[in-house]
Amino acid sequence: MNVFRLAGDMTHLLSILLLLLKIYATKSCSGVSRKTQELYAIVFIFRYLDLFTDFISVYNTFMKVVFIASSLAIVWCMRFHPVVRRSYDRELDTFRYFFLVGASFALALIWHEKFSVQEVFWAFSIYLEAVAILPQLVLLQRSGNVDNLTGQYVFFLGAYRAFYILNWIYRYLTEPRFTRWIAGTSGVVQTALYADFFYYYFISWKNNSKLKLPA
């Protein structure tokens, strides 16, 4: 574990806590894409299939459980919580994410560490995570004003993978024969997708104005 990876995991955890806070505090999920939340639930379930078979550390197992449980809890809230579900932007959150799931799985069948169920699903989860934010970014563009907590959620969610890229560079330089081509390539694509969001987020922070993504 190095400082970049710890910062990445803590930033990821912070983003999830911010989203939980927003939904709990405002009893509303306006501006949040349920499709992105469902994609993240799929990402975590298929990435951590080894949750019960490979024990790496208490930290690793604990974080996996937190990620799976929180993503499922958020999806449950947005679908079934009597108050929260009413604020879901159903008519704006229309990204046809089936293609993202299909393309990620197809790519995982071609490019994986090993041709086994666990490894193909692991690669699938890596590719799917790279594009999982798309429905959320589209929703932000469509829904005019973005509330602060939702903006912060997306910001930290994008920042966590940038820390992971620093972690991979650090490990590549310090550990012999360390390679993470699948996660690394996918992580760069994932972080690049946030580029314009980061730009408008920085502008809104600099001008102390409301975050606004151009439609």
């Binding site: 790496i56 974080m63 090993k114």
Partner: peptide, 10 residues
């Protein structure tokens, strides 16, 4: 035997 692709990261 081929080392399993170690996924020590989250």
């Amino acid at each position: 035997v081929e080392l399993p692709a170690n996924h020590d990261e989250l």
